[in-house]
Structure formats: C-alpha cells, structure tokens
Design a protein around this nucleic acid. Structure first.
Lengths: 227, 227
DNA sequence: CGTGCGCTTGACTTTTTTCAATAAAGGTGG
DNA sequence: CCACCTTTATTGAAAAAAGTCAAGCGCACG
C-alpha cells in the first residue's frame, strides 16, 4: 500500500488541499515494526510525531514496582507522540505496539513549519489535543470518583456504544490490558466480571461479553457505586 | 487596570505582533465576579473561552454523591475552557472562582478566526493544550500508580520546586481543596500529614509546611509507596 | 460572643491489593 | 497434529489502604 492511500485514510489530514497533502507526504517516513516494539520510551527526546497506519499501540506509564497504567490504545489513523512537539521535549509516557504495525513518522521541524503555514492543519491538531483532554478528564473522573465496578460498567457501555449499541461485544484486548487501562489489576477485574455475571448484568465467555441488564449497568456506571 | 495592560501580562499572547494584539483586545469581554461564582458548569455549551486576569478558579468534576475531584486550579494569566472550542461543544467539567476574579471572555467564532489567521496564536494554543495533557498524564499516574502518601509527598515537593526549592512553604488552598485535588478526602489527608509530621518528614503549622527530610519525601513520591 | 466552617481524631467498614496456587489458552517446534 | 511451554485468567485467603460516620476543637467572621 502506498503512502498516499494511507494518508488519505487518516482523519487528521482531512480537509487538506492537494498540494499540502503532497507536502505532508514529502516529509513522512514509514516504518514497519513487529508486535512488542517500543516506539519511544518515557523520557525520550521527541524528534517528531507519529501516525499509526496499521496495527495497534499502547501508550502507558509504569510504576517503579512494575504496575502499568495504560493511557491510550490507538488504532489505525490515530496520531500519537504529539505532546512532545509543542511543549517540553521529552515524551511523558512510553509506547509499545500490541501487534505488528506500520508507523508514519513526521520529523519535528518539518512538521512544525507545515503547521505554521497551514491553519487547517493547526486546527485539526487542536481538535486532536482537545479530544485527548476530554478523554483524560473522563479518565481522572473514573479513577477518582468511581470504584472499579463503576469503571468496568462504564467501559462495557462505552464499547457497546462504539458499535452502535449492540449488546454483544468482543474485548479486543486481553483482560490484563483492560485491567491496566481501568487502573486496576487482573485479579480484581476478574472478580468483578464474575460478580456482574452472577448477578445477571452480563454474560461472559472468554473475550465475548453480552449485556443482559443495560439499565443496571448504566446505573452502576453513573453512580460509580458498589456491586 | 485597562485591557491592554492585562493582555500584555498573559503569556498565552506572547509573541503576537501589535496589530494582532489589538484584534484580540477588540474581541475580549471583561467581567468581574465575586468569590464562589460558577463561570460555567459541566455540560454547558461553550460559547467561547476564558482567560483569568486576576483571582483564582477551580476546574472540577463532581460525583453523583457529591465528592469533588479538582482538575486544575488556575491563577492570573491562565486560559481555561478552551477544550470546548476545538472539539465537541459542551464543557467536560465545571468551574467556580475561589476568590473574587476578573475574567476575560473571548467569543468562539471571533477567536477561531483569529487563530486561523494567526499561526503564532495557534502554536501558543497548541502549547497550552500540550502542557495540560502533560499535567493530566501526571494526574492519572498519581491516581492510579501512587497511594495517597505518595501523592501528598509529590505535591509538597511540587510546591517547593515552584518556589525555587525552598523548604518552607504555604498552602494556598484549604486542606479540603487539596484533598479534592489529590483525589482523596480531608480525613485521609489529615491523617497522612500527621504521620509525615510524626515521622519527621515535615513539620506543619496550619497552612505552613516545612520540609525536614527531602530525601525521604522524594523517595515516597517516586515509589508511590507506603508511610 | 456566638455560629459555622474547616480541621482533626477515633472506631469501624468496605474496597482493593497481595500472595499463592491452579487452570486454561495460545503459539512453537518437533 | 500433538506435546510443551509461556502467557493469561481465575479463585481463595489474608493484609492493607482508604473511606464512612461521628464527635470535638478552634478559628474566623459576622
């Protein structure tokens, strides 16, 4: 697949005139990496930013004793590592591919001049950062104001909504990773899914979840409450 | 104090040419409000964004049962409410002044065209959002990976660093507010400060804190650990 | 001088983590 | 295709951390 076709699929470059798109294409460097690749580590100097062309990648923080908090899991078309472009210069978190991936790299200076010359691109980038801020706002809210069952319920509903409201859904990450994303540990997640299952809120079979009592899940998610 | 002098003190408008600054000035609306004023509430539609000229304001989330998580406390010169400009349209959190304040308001459309016409301004805004993302990254890290003593230690060190590393510092918010900022409750904060004090890490007298054992505080903050 | 709000402290409860053991699942190489 | 090995998931029992409820103190403000 060529660069041009990939770029045209990235929402972030939407609305760019042809010639600008050509410029963007001019500075992009493509890289294919296997699963488990560390693209950058926390504290690394940011030489540019990235867009995922295919595969998936996690952005995460690690505690000294090895616990991981996943901040984002990105899929095709999503930019990452932008923060280091606009403030400070080191990455505030690390990144590692969850599967084999193709990654576009945009060198810092070249991309910055592109943005300066291109209000549309700047606005798109502002939108990207704003959405990230919203996500973090919700994450802080969940971590601080909800107990784990509330976070789990909210996440299941989020997955369902993303698919248009189906009550059948598949986890697309391991449960350990889900635990790390929700700010808990696999054991706790396992117990909570078990309890939800035995109380008839959901049914679980491996990575498949079926929502049985949406009302109650919504109540749990909103109240942050106990199970 | 006139608008122009205020604007010149706002870092966010740094580097703007004279005529642009005049344009900014042209669209700003100034408002004086007493302590406790709700500037906007979570879910409100964002008609524009704000810059604090004087006073202080908190940005916060509320849980259904009344617990508050403070996301930011902003002082003079800091912009807020920008997220609603660039993505979605409602505010993801609420805001309320902690003291009497003067607030500049910039209507959405006028400000957006200013940004489009003005790469410098766009870059400044990107920097602002990036810094916020860094702050949130740290907040998520603290909430998820550190226990409360670790958060308290980190916060004390942060306050100290902000003053150039003094070991004597004054809390500039109430301890209840500090608790809400650190994702805990006043009782827990009180106990932890007490423990830190009795173990000789700090001494406390009302709102004054003196750091006695910086090493140990740093260890606590880094390890996230127990006290 | 009283009232209220913020702060502290104690006893108790709840939630979550830790540690350990086992079971299941997935990928690899023979 | 199967056996093996690593990773992932589940479960129990015990420990720890934080939150709840309740009471009391002190200080600021009217």
């Amino acid at each position: 697949m060529n660069l041009q076709r990939i770029l045209s699929m990235v929402p972030f470059f939407d609305g760019l005139p042809e010639n600008q798109l050509a410029q963007v294409e001019g500075i992009a460097v493509i890289r294919e990496v296997p699963k488990g690749t560390v693209v950058f580590s926390e504290g690394d100097e940011g030489e540019g930013f990235y867009v995922l062309a295919s595969g998936r990648i996690k952005i995460f923080k690690l505690s000294p004793d090895g616990k991981e908090q996943i901040l984002h899991i990105f899929g095709p078309g999503e930019p990452f590592g932008e923060v280091a472009l606009f403030s400070g210069k080191h990455f505030p978190a690390g990144s590692q591919t969850l599967e084999a991936a193709r990654i576009l790299f945009f060198p810092r200076e070249a991309f910055l001049s592109l943005i300066k010359a291109n209000p549309e691109l700047a606005l798109n980038m502002l939108a990207v950062l704003s959405v990230r801020l919203r996500i973090f706002t919700r994450m802080v809210e969940n971590l601080s104001l909800k107990e784990v069952p509330g976070r789990v319920a909210a996440h299941i509903l989020y997955l369902s909504d993303r698919l248009g409201g189906t009550s059948s859904l598949e986890l697309d990450i391991t449960k350990s990773q889900l635990a790390a994303l929700l700010g808990t540990i696999p054991e706790t997640l396992s117990r909570i899914l078990g309890r939800m299952s035995s109380r008839g809120l959901i049914s679980i079979d491996g990575a498949s979840i079926r929502i049985l009592d949406r009302e109650e899940l919504e109540f749990l998610a909103a109240s942050g409450g106990k199970l």
